[in-house]
């Protein structure tokens, strides 16, 4: 019974998960990922529910008591039909899950995707233990990322020392920064606001402190900010 309550409570937390950053997407990328998380969760809950129902049922019905304690159960080797059932049904569930998995993963893992025409290009460099962002007009910021709303952003990811991982939970999943290699990531923020960004790959002593803030602003505000920053360095 306690298990059931726990399950219900967790389900409620899960469904009202709008407060959880990963389930509160602010870009198409993150929305697709959030959809996959909730879709796979729903499918898996079917399996989980069946197992729990059978588990509770069998355990309560066949538990040893005063009547049956000397009873020797009939020998039963198995049942091909039942065994085929629980082989085939998981296959079907997984096939259903595989379709959106393959299509979204394929789309989001693409390396060759061409740069969108109106994209903002930002170079991201990770180093122990901070982030450097370089904008097209030569402006550089540390741990402070500014993006315009509703325009695709192409991040070029590089590492100065060891492996880091670039992650803004509300804008999309992470991508590793590998020393000596270049990775790309394209997202389009759809709402203004301030979002957390983090290094997700353990990178040494102050990995915990390797965080940045992402501020998504209106296009005009963004241009103004770039201008101001440019003037500051000149």
């Amino acid at each position: 019974m306690n298990k059931c309550k726990l399950l219900m409570a967790s389900l409620v937390i899960f469904l009202t998960g709008c407060n959880l950053r990963v389930l509160d997407p602010k870009s198409e990328t993150a929305r697709d990922q959030s959809f996959l998380i909730q879709f796979s969760f729903a499918l898996m809950m079917i399996v989980f529910a069946i197992v729990i129902i059978l588990f509770v049922w069998f355990l309560s019905k066949y538990r040893e008591n005063d009547q049956n304690k000397d009873y020797i159960p009939a020998d039963e080797k198995g049942s091909p039909w039942l065994e085929i059932t629980w082989t085939v049904i998981p296959f079907i569930l997984l096939a259903i899950l595989a379709v959106p998995t393959v299509s979204i993963t394929f789309e989001q893992s693409a390396q060759t995707e061409s740069t969108p025409t109106d994209a903002v290009l930002i170079e991201v460099t990770g180093q122990q233990f901070s982030w450097t962002f370089s904008y097209q007009n030569g402006v550089e910021t540390v741990n402070d990322l500014r993006l315009p709303v509703d325009r695709p952003v192409e991040f070029t990811l590089r590492s100065d020392d060891i492996i880091h991982s670039f992650w803004i939970p509300k804008l999309g999943g992470k991508k590793d920064l590998i020393p000596g290699e270049t990775r790309r990531m394209i997202v389009t923020p759809e709402e203004t606001g301030t979002y957390q960004g983090k290094c997700a790959e353990f990178c040494g002593r102050e990995h915990t402190k390797m965080r940045f803030t992402t501020t998504v602003m209106e296009e005009s505000e963004y241009e103004q900010w770039l201008e101001d920053m440019k003037e500051k360095i000149e």
């Binding site: 990963v22 993150a30 697709d32 990922q33 959030s34 996959l36 998380i37 796979s40 899950l97 998995t101 979204i104 993963t105 789309e107 989001q108 893992s109 991982s165 939970p169 999309g172 999943g173 992470k174 991508k175 997700a200 790959e201 353990f202």
Partner: peptide, 12 residues
Amino acid sequence: AVAAADFQFHDT
């Protein structure tokens, strides 16, 4: 196992 969802889950 859902790779695109794992982009979010990974290392959390």
